[in-house]
């Protein structure tokens, strides 16, 4: 191993330590359990028992689940991320962390990864839905895999936005509401705007709309355009979060 790869692994090690600690604190503070119960209960109820559930549609498809998860994750994720930086700033523990051998970037990445893993765990716990469905009828595997991938990518975007909102303020409620506010644009408002404008402006909003890209992936087609969209939003969110953290260095 040359020097840069060792350095890279050392960097990842710090990220992983932060991730482990954050995951532990999710489970210790019961936040993780509440999230899992709410998410599974909510999505299970509407996928199997109520509204336009699978039996009403009468097809072996997980679309009802994906559209429920699309909304429930949108609301749950800001609740998960709101305290991640705001609380550390309020109690001053951020000073403790950042004066140890951890860079701002490692901290942000570690926190992102922890929330992302928790969402992945809750998504993985819905795999019995897939198994049940497969025993009832013929499931389009590509569609299911792409649906899960779409949810994971969308969660990534909202975690990045949530972290950014959390880095804006010391107040968790403010962080929660501003994450929802920013998220709402991507979730629905850009889509509405796209439908109301014609020509290049409509095209532009269409490109910004997350629901648009999500649907495109959910159809079972993995387009680079969609991947680039999600990944660049995640990158942008994390970059702005790191930037926000670095502001303390000048302003105190």
């Amino acid at each position: 191993m040359n020097n840069t790869t060792t350095k890279y692994f050392k960097n990842m090690n710090s990220v992983w330590i932060i991730t482990k600690k954050e995951l532990n604190s999710f489970f210790d503070s019961l936040i993780a359990y509440i999230l899992l119960v709410l998410f599974l209960g909510f999505s299970g109820f509407f996928t199997w028992m109520f509204g336009s559930d699978i039996f009403l549609i009468g097809q072996a498809t997980l679309r009802p689940f994906f559209s429920i998860a699309y909304w429930s994750l949108f609301i749950f994720i800001p609740a998960l991320t709101m305290r991640m930086i705001a609380e550390e700033r309020k109690t001053g523990t951020i000073e403790l962390l950042l004066t140890k051998a951890v860079s701002d970037r490692q901290l942000v990445l570690g926190k992102f990864l922890a929330a992302f893993l928790l969402i992945c765990i809750s998504l993985a716990l819905t795999l019995p839905y897939v198994i049940t469905l497969a025993s009832i009828g013929n499931v389009d595997n590509g569609e299911v895999i792409c649906g899960y991938l779409g949810l994971a990518l969308m969660s990534g975007v909202y975690i990045a936005i949530g972290l950014y909102a959390s880095s804006l303020t010391n107040n968790q409620i403010v962080a929660f509401l501003s994450a929802l506010f920013i998220g709402l644009f991507f979730h629905i408002i850009f889509d509405i705007l796209a439908n109301n404008f014609k020509g290049s402006i409509g095209e532009f909003f269409n490109m910004l709309s997350l629901s648009n890209h999500f649907e495109s992936i959910q159809r079972g087609v993995l387009d680079t355009k969609d991947l680039v969209y999600f990944l660049s939003l995640i990158f942008l969110g994390l970059f702005l979060t790191e930037n926000n953290l670095a502001k303390r260095k000048v302003n105190g």
Partner: peptide
């Protein structure tokens, strides 16, 4: 480093 006011993770 021991910062002023000694911030700690109280739930750990």
């Amino acid at each position: 480093y021991l910062p002023e006011n000694n911030p700690l993770y109280l739930d750990m």
